[in-house]
Amino acid sequence: MRKNILIIGASSGIGKALASVLTDEGHALWATYHRHEPSTQANTQWVRWDAVNEAFPDDFLPDILHAVVYCPGSIALKPFQRFTPQDFINDYQLQVVGAVKALRAAQAALKKAESAAVVLFSTVAVQTGFPFHAVVAASKGAIEGLTRALAAEWAPTVRVNAIAPSLTDTPLAAALLSNEEKKKANAQRHPLKRLGNAEEIAQAAAFLLSDAASWITGQVFHIDGGMSSLKI
């Protein structure tokens, strides 16, 4: 079945990889970008949107949506005492309030589909505490709460799930993976001894959007190379 799918942040990283997977499957995409100019892609309508500072452009959406994916994120890492309260607010605006804006705008179109799905993104740092991750863990912890609350409220017609990756090799993580030494060191922290990549996370998201996942909702999936559950 050809689906109408909205991807927020589809021009880079996991969002870009997911857009490629979904268009290859024949779906129609409505996609947003901010800093990264999108490449031309079949069956995709683009709009520029600043999730922090702008209202969502409601007139951009089709009448019926079968899925929404919210991909924008940030990785701000430093000691807690160096974060200000405003740092927490700024990160929450991007990672949580931005998602709320998109989902509020899309809700009516999602409800018109017989069966719809939402995928949000958390992080391994919510359930597994890491130093210097206070800001990102706080925002993504809110995303996990939002995932479960909306899954309950929007059932049975809209499924809502989240993916919690560990560090993946994407432009968002470029500062942490800026050379081979850093990449090797971060890879060794994972039981599988390598970093994840955007395509692997995108495939997991595509599955959660598909009819094959029609009995899955309210879940947070740890796609993290074993980081959250294994010690070896």
Rank of each mutant, 00 (worst) to 15 (best):
A152S: 11
K140Q: 10
A185V: 06
G145I: 03
T170K: 11
K184Y: 09
R159V: 02
K182T: 01
G141D: 02
K140S: 07
A175G: 07
A149C: 07
N161G: 03
K183P: 03
L172N: 13
R148D: 00
V136M: 14
G129V: 12
A137M: 10
T123Y: 13
Q127H: 14
E180H: 03
A137Q: 12
D169G: 04
I143M: 00
S115F: 09
A125Y: 14
A173G: 04
E181H: 08
T128E: 15
T157H: 09
P165F: 11
T168K: 07
A125S: 15
A174E: 14
L150Y: 04
P156W: 09
F121G: 04
P171C: 15
L150C: 07
G145P: 09
T157E: 04
V160N: 03
A125G: 08
N179H: 10
Q127T: 11
V119R: 01
A187W: 05
A173P: 11
E144H: 01
E153D: 02
E144V: 04
K184T: 14
A134S: 15
L176P: 04
E181G: 05
L167S: 00
A125K: 11
F130H: 15
V158S: 13
S115A: 12
R148E: 05
A174C: 02
P131W: 02
A162Q: 05
G141T: 00
F130A: 13
F132T: 11
A138E: 08
W154M: 11
T147A: 01
R148L: 00
L150G: 03
L146M: 13
P171N: 04
V136I: 14
E153N: 00
V118N: 08
E144N: 09
L177N: 04
A185L: 10
N179M: 07
T147E: 06
K140L: 12
A137H: 09
F132I: 06
A164G: 13
A149S: 14
V126S: 11
S122L: 07
E180P: 05
A134Q: 08
V135K: 12
E153Q: 08
N161L: 04
I143F: 02
G145Q: 08
A137C: 10
W154A: 08
A162I: 05
S178A: 15
E181K: 11
A117F: 06
A187L: 02
Q127C: 05
